[in-house]
Measured scan of single mutants.
Amino acid sequence: KKSYVLIKVKNPKTKETHTIVVPEENLEEVLKALASQPNVKVVDIERFP
């Protein structure tokens, strides 16, 4: 059974918020990819039960 993680990201320029759902096993690479985006800020990470 896969567990999923909900990542909320915000664009500081446009103030838009997006929610991305990723499998927990991919969380680290997704966070690394997001960290390299200049106008993306991770605001929240939630685990799915």
Rank of each mutant, 00 (worst) to 15 (best):
K1G: 12
K1T: 13
K2M: 11
K2P: 15
K2Y: 09
S3H: 13
S3N: 11
S3P: 12
S3I: 10
S3V: 11
S3T: 14
V5T: 03
V5R: 02
V5H: 03
V5A: 06
L6T: 08
L6H: 10
L6C: 05
I7V: 10
I7M: 01
I7S: 00
I7D: 00
K8I: 09
V9D: 00
V9S: 01
K10W: 15
N11A: 02
N11P: 01
N11V: 06
P12S: 15
P12T: 15
K13Y: 14
K13S: 12
K13C: 11
K13N: 13
T14C: 05
T14Q: 03
T14L: 03
K15C: 15
E16M: 04
E16G: 04
E16I: 05
E16W: 05
E16Q: 07
T17W: 07
T17A: 04
T17R: 05
T17E: 09
H18T: 11
H18F: 15
T19L: 06
T19H: 09
T19K: 06
T19S: 10
I20Q: 02
V21L: 13
V21R: 06
V22H: 02
V22N: 00
V22C: 03
P23H: 09
P23G: 06
P23V: 10
E24C: 11
E25D: 09
E25R: 05
E25M: 06
N26L: 08
N26M: 11
L27P: 00
L27T: 02
E28S: 09
E28F: 10
E29A: 13
V30Q: 03
L31H: 01
L31W: 02
L31Y: 02
L31P: 00
L31Q: 01
L31F: 02
L31S: 01
K32A: 09
K32S: 10
A33P: 00
A33V: 10
A33S: 10
L34H: 01
L34G: 00
L34E: 00
P38G: 09
N39Y: 07
N39T: 07
N39S: 07
N39L: 05
K41G: 03
V42S: 01
V42L: 04
V42M: 02
V43F: 03
V43N: 02
V43P: 00
V43E: 06
D44P: 01
D44W: 13
I45Y: 04
E46W: 08
E46Y: 14
E46Q: 13
E46L: 13
E46K: 12
R47T: 09
R47K: 10
F48V: 12
F48D: 04
P49G: 05
